Every structure is written in structure tokens, then in C-alpha cells.
Simulated scan of single mutants.
Amino acid sequence: MQEFAPPLTFSALVTTLRAAGCVFAEDEAELLQATAADPAALATMLERRAAGLPLEHVLGWAEFCGLRISVDPGVFVPRRRTEFLVRQAAALSPAPAVVVDLCCGSGALGTALASALDGVELHAVDVDPAAVRCARRNVGGLGTVHEGDLFAPLPRSLRGRVDALLANVPYVPTGDVALLPAEARVHEPRVALDGGGDGLDVMRRVVAEAADWLAPGGSLLVETSERQAARAEETVGSRGLGARVVVSEELYATVVIGTRPR
């Protein structure tokens, strides 16, 4: 007679997660139990998490701005700190608004902003085919997801019409990528992390074209680190945009905003 292992108890989940180094083991155990379809699925999910996969890849989703965003394996996981960028964009955007989400990953930023505002025309872009597939599920009928490098795949008709240009570009300096936690370094695409020598290479490419795409009064919003903020602000301002830095100490988030003059 075949013997079956008993279902995992909450205590067993927590013990295994703690042993794997999960700081919030109790919270993660609750999420695994709530998401698993059956005991076999729960055991598989626990095994994957204990092996070091990001929790969001194990669950298949991440919570972002109150939404459940699908996150496939190998796709960049939206960070809670980036909710600050979305809130800033929502405060600046008119209604209706034309929104572009560059380096969109799962499409979390554009989806969240389009869900918060009425009448958004949303376009999201990513160079990674896996991210594009994931973003298309999240964006759904809220907008269009394009595959390609930065502005290249966008319709030319958007030039001069974009009210909010969200650019959650990679900003980790190349030399620091190896220092990232394994969850990011091993399981997220390097193209979503590596920002070049000083971490600002992709941002510079975005800023170089941003003014041509922004509507009068439209804003570019870029997430960066505290130590990069001054250089990022200078770069944004050098392209004719009114630049400023906004910070959330609560979320440890730094955003550079560049606004095209009216």
C-alpha cells in the first residue's frame, strides 16, 4: 500500500522557512498556505522557496499598490518602494492622461497608475520577451504592451503627447550586481538590474529622448538610489526639463522628476 506524507503543518512551514533564512517566516507561511491549491502544491512551493527562489516567483504574484500583479519566474519583481513613484505620477497626471511605462517588467507601474486614474491611454515597453508576456497579462485591456528597446517600439503618434513617462530603469552599478541578494542576482534578469558603470547608463538614454515624447507640462519619473540622486537630477535638468528629487523615508525610495515646460 502506498503511503502518503501528512499535510504540512503551519509550524513545519515556519520551521523550514526559518532554516532557509527567511526573516518573515510566519508571514510567508501564511501566504504559501493561502495560495497553494492542495497539499502537494504546498510542498512544492515550500521546496522552491527554501531553495532560494523569490517568494513572488513561488506564489506567482506580488502585491503592488493594492493590486495582485502576476510575476513569472525570471521576471523582475516589483518592489514596494516603487509604489512611491506611482503615487507621485498619479498626483502629477491630468485626466485623461497618456502614460508610458518604460522598462515595464511585469507591467506593475503602468497597471497601477491606469487603475488609479480615469481615462488613461497606457503604453508599456520592455526589451525582455518574458517580461512582455507577463506584462500583457497584467495590463490586459488597460493598454498596450510593446516589445523592444526603450522608445523604439512606441507609436510615433505619441511624440509630444505623453503626460507621465514612468521609467523604472535598472540602476545598480555593474560592479555592485554581484553584491545583490541571491534572490535578485540569480533569479531576476540582469538586464533589469545592471545600470552600467555608475548605474545611470539606461537613465541617460531615457533622458536623452524624454523631452521629445513628453507633452507640455508632462513629467518623466525615474527611480534611483540616494547616492545617485544628485547626478541623476543634474542629468535630467541638462536636457531642458525642470528637475527635482522627491524622497520617501518610509519606503526608502528616491525619485527624480523632470517636467517639460509648458
Results as ranks from 00 to 15, higher is better:
residue 29 A to K: 11
residue 215 A to Y: 12
residue 100 V to P: 03
residue 134 C to Q: 07
residue 206 V to W: 04
residue 41 A to N: 07
residue 200 L to W: 09
residue 121 E to Y: 00
residue 88 Q to W: 05
residue 51 A to Y: 01
residue 137 R to W: 08
residue 245 V to R: 14
residue 27 D to V: 12
residue 89 A to Q: 07
residue 24 F to Y: 14
residue 136 R to M: 03
residue 9 T to E: 04
residue 37 A to P: 00
residue 5 A to P: 01
residue 117 L to V: 03
residue 34 A to D: 14
residue 233 E to V: 15
residue 208 A to H: 07
residue 190 R to P: 03
residue 162 V to R: 01
residue 84 F to Q: 01
residue 193 L to N: 06
residue 90 A to P: 02
residue 47 E to M: 02
residue 240 G to V: 10
residue 48 R to A: 13
residue 1 M to H: 13
residue 42 L to V: 07
residue 227 R to H: 14
residue 30 E to K: 15
residue 86 V to I: 11
residue 72 D to S: 15
residue 113 L to M: 08
residue 157 S to L: 12
residue 1 M to S: 14
residue 93 S to Q: 03
residue 218 G to D: 04
residue 158 L to S: 10
residue 69 I to H: 00
residue 101 D to A: 03
residue 216 P to Y: 09
residue 87 R to D: 15
residue 251 L to P: 03
residue 20 A to Q: 11
residue 98 V to K: 04
residue 80 R to S: 08
residue 181 P to N: 07
residue 52 G to A: 02
residue 51 A to D: 13
residue 261 P to D: 05
residue 166 L to P: 06
residue 51 A to N: 06
residue 261 P to G: 06
residue 156 R to H: 12
residue 174 T to S: 14
residue 170 P to T: 11
residue 90 A to G: 02
residue 244 R to H: 12
residue 243 A to M: 00
residue 88 Q to S: 11
residue 27 D to Q: 14
residue 21 G to M: 09
residue 256 V to Q: 07
residue 153 P to S: 06
residue 71 V to K: 01
residue 249 E to V: 05
residue 59 L to Y: 10
residue 78 P to Q: 05
residue 213 W to L: 01
residue 85 L to I: 02
residue 173 P to E: 10
residue 113 L to I: 04
residue 72 D to H: 15
residue 28 E to T: 11
residue 252 Y to H: 14
residue 135 A to N: 05
residue 24 F to L: 14
residue 30 E to W: 12
residue 228 Q to D: 02
residue 226 E to T: 09
residue 140 G to C: 06
residue 217 G to N: 02
residue 132 V to S: 00
residue 182 A to C: 03
residue 219 S to C: 13
residue 202 V to H: 07
residue 9 T to G: 14
residue 90 A to V: 11
residue 177 V to N: 01
residue 185 R to Q: 02
residue 5 A to G: 08
residue 208 A to T: 04
residue 40 A to P: 00
residue 145 V to M: 00
residue 71 V to M: 01
residue 205 R to S: 10
residue 229 A to W: 05
residue 240 G to A: 06
residue 247 V to I: 14
residue 52 G to P: 02
residue 4 F to R: 15
residue 192 A to T: 03
residue 125 V to T: 05
residue 23 V to Q: 13
residue 228 Q to T: 05
residue 199 G to M: 10
residue 86 V to M: 09
residue 42 L to G: 06
residue 206 V to P: 05
residue 221 L to H: 13
residue 165 L to D: 08
residue 65 C to Y: 07
residue 79 R to L: 11
residue 70 S to I: 12
residue 247 V to C: 13
